[in-house]
Computed example of a mutant assay.
Amino acid sequence: MRTVESATDAADPMVRLPLTREVRSLQEARAAIDEVDAALALLLARRAELAGAVQRLKPVGGFAGRDPHRERQIVEAMARRAPALGVDRLARIMNAVIEAGLEAAEDAREAR
């Protein structure tokens, strides 16, 4: 399995993240979690960059420009892909992701 080293790698369908059924030991389980976490970190960074682009394009950006309907659509779509997590858990996760992305966009704007 190729190591996830960039957001492009993490999104590449040729990068195969570890499957739970292939994990045979605690060490393998932890290594698999590390691979998933590496991919997740890179994907979250990429999402934050894209959210920053959205903030630049919206008439009202930042926390004031949040769109609850759009956020609900995102969560519902994710819940269809990850039903074991469910809408409520994913809503909490995505709220944290969205808020972190907005904060990162604000920080980047202030740094310019």
Rank of each mutant, 00 (worst) to 15 (best):
V87G: 00
A96F: 02
L85N: 09
N95A: 15
G101I: 09
A104N: 04
R112A: 08
D37F: 03
L50W: 01
I98C: 08
A48N: 05
S6V: 14
L57M: 14
P13S: 08
P13C: 03
A29P: 01
E22M: 11
L17N: 06
D37Q: 14
D107L: 15
I98A: 05
R70S: 10
A39K: 00
V87M: 04
D9Q: 01
R109G: 06
T3R: 12
A77Q: 15
L40F: 05
L50Q: 10
R30F: 00
E5G: 15
I93C: 06
D34S: 14
G61M: 03
L42D: 04
R70H: 11
L90G: 01
A41I: 06
F63H: 10
A108F: 08
T20F: 07
E106R: 15
A51F: 02
A38Y: 00
L57V: 07
R92Y: 07
G101W: 01
A11F: 01
I33R: 07
V54I: 13
P68W: 05
Q73G: 14
H69Q: 14
R89D: 09
R46L: 12
E28Y: 02
R30V: 04
L40S: 10
M14L: 13
Q27N: 10
R89Q: 13
R21S: 12
E76G: 04
D34N: 11
G65I: 07
G101S: 15
V4E: 01
A38P: 11
L102R: 01
P18C: 06
V4N: 02
E5P: 01
A45N: 03
A91V: 10
A53F: 04
E106G: 12
L44P: 00
D9R: 01
A10H: 04
A10I: 12
M78V: 13
R92F: 09
G61A: 15
D107H: 13
A10C: 10
L50A: 13
G65R: 05
R89H: 11
R21A: 11
D67A: 11
D12T: 04
V23Y: 01
R46E: 11
D12A: 04
A41E: 11
E99K: 12
D37H: 07
V15Q: 05
R30W: 00
V36N: 01
I93D: 10
R46A: 15
V23P: 02
E28K: 05
V15L: 06
E49G: 09
A111K: 13
R24L: 10
